[in-house]
Design a protein around this nucleic acid. Structure first.
Lengths: 199, 199
DNA sequence: GTCTATAAAGCGATAGAC
DNA sequence: GTCTATCGCTTTATAGAC
C-alpha cells in the first residue's frame, strides 16, 4: 500500500477520534492529511469505503499492541511472566489516557456504533471481535489450564464486552478513568475465581 | 409539557433508532411527528437542544420500565419474588428484540456515543447512569444483604457497563441476541457468587 | 402555535488540467 | 497520482403569513 494511502487512513483515525464518524468531513480529513479532497476520492471509492478501510487500520493497530506486548524484545518489567498479569496488562492497555490509545478506542467505538446503521462495516467488525475474544480466551486458558474451552470463551466475551462498555463510559465522560480501570481489574479477578470454581 | 412537544420527542427517539443521531434529519423527524420543520425549531432551540431533550425522554422511559416491573399491578409470573430473579429480569429487559426495547437501546447507545463529542449531552447521561447503577446495587443488596455497600456498587457498575457493551455488540450485529442474554445471565451469577464470597 | 416558502450554508462527489 | 475549481444536492435554520 502506498504511503499516501496509509497517511490518509492514519489521518482519518485522528479526525474520527476528534470529531466522531458523524463529524468526519472529507475536507477536514484532507487538511489533516495534507492532501486534496480529490485525492481521497481517487484512493477510496467513497466515504463508506474510506470508513471501512479505516476500521481495518484500527483493528491492525490494536492487534499490534497485543503483539508488541507478547514480543520477546520488550523489557521484562513490561511483560510479566504471570499469565494473569499479562492478561490484566493487555486489557488495561485500552484504558489509558494516552493520545494514541484514546484515538484508537474512540475510533473503534465510533465505528462500532456506525455499524448499527451501516451493515457494510459489520464484516470487519465481527472479524476483529472474534480475534480479540480468542486472544483473551487463550490467555485465560494459560492461567486456568483445566477450565473447559466453552467457559473460557464465555469469560472472554464478558471481559471484552465489559471493556468496551467501560471504555464507552470513560470516553463519554460518565466514568472516571481510574474507576474504569479498577472495575476492569476486579472483573478479571472475579472471572478467574469463577473459572477456578468450575474444577 | 405540551402534547405536541412530547409527540416530537417520541418521534425523535424513533427516528434516531432508525437512522442514528447522525442520520436524524429534521425533515424526516417532521414527517414522522406529523408536523412542520418550523414547529420543531419553534419548540426546541436547535438540533442539539432537541437531542438533549430526547436523551431525557429516553432516560425517563428506561426508568419507567423498571418502575413498571416493580409495580404491584403486574401478574405474579412477571414479577418474581426472588430478588435475584427480579434483577435478572430487569437487566435482560434491555436485551429483547421488541420494537420499543430496540428503539430505546439504540437511541440510548447513539446518544451516549454522541456525548463523546458533545459535552452538552453529558450531564443528562451521567445522571441517568448514576440512577441506574444505584437501582442495580439496591437489588443486589436485597439478594446479598451482608455484602458491603462499596462491593455492591462496584458489581452494579460492572453489570450495567457489561449490559451496555453486550447491547452494543448485539445492535451492531457482532453478537447474536441469545448469546448476549446468556452472557448477561452468567455474569449475574458470577457477580453474586463473588459477593457471597466476601462474607 | 403552526404553516409555507426560502435563504444560507455545508458537503459529497466529479471534471479536467498537469 | 495529485491538484484546482466547481457542480449540485442536502440540510439547517429563519422570515413572515395566518
Amino acid at each position: 500500500m502506498s504511503d499516501r494511502r496509509t497517511a490518509i487512513l492514519e489521518a482519518a483515525a485522528t479526525v474520527i477520534a476528534r470529531r466522531g464518524v458523524r463529524g468526519l468531513r472529507v475536507e477536514e480529513l484532507a487538511e489533516e492529511a495534507g492532501v486534496s479532497k480529490a485525492l481521497i476520492y481517487y484512493h477510496f471509492e467513497d466515504r463508506t469505503g474510506l470508513l471501512r478501510r479505516t476500521l481495518a487500520l484500527v483493528n491492525n493497530r490494536a492487534e499490534r499492541y497485543t503483539a508488541e506486548q507478547a514480543a520477546a524484545g520488550q523489557p521484562a518489567a513490561e511483560t510479566p511472566a504471570d499469565p494473569l498479569r499479562r492478561l490484566e496488562q493487555a486489557l488495561l492497555l485500552e484504558l489509558q489516557d494516552l493520545p494514541h490509545v484514546r484515538e484508537n478506542s474512540t475510533a473503534w467505538g465510533e465505528l462500532r456504533a456506525s455499524a448499527v446503521f451501516d451493515p457494510e462495516l459489520r464484516g470487519e467488525l465481527a472479524l476483529a471481535s472474534v480475534i480479540w475474544v480468542r486472544e483473551v480466551a487463550d490467555q485465560l486458558g494459560e492461567a486456568r489450564p483445566t477450565a473447559p474451552e466453552s467457559a473460557l470463551t464465555a469469560s472472554a466475551e464478558r471481559l471484552t464486552a465489559l471493556l468496551e462498555g467501560l471504555s464507552a463510559r470513560w470516553l463519554s465522560g460518565i466514568l472516571p478513568l481510574t474507576d474504569a480501570r479498577t472495575r476492569m481489574r476486579e472483573a478479571i479477578g472475579v472471572e478467574v475465581a469463577h473459572l477456578a470454581g468450575l474444577d
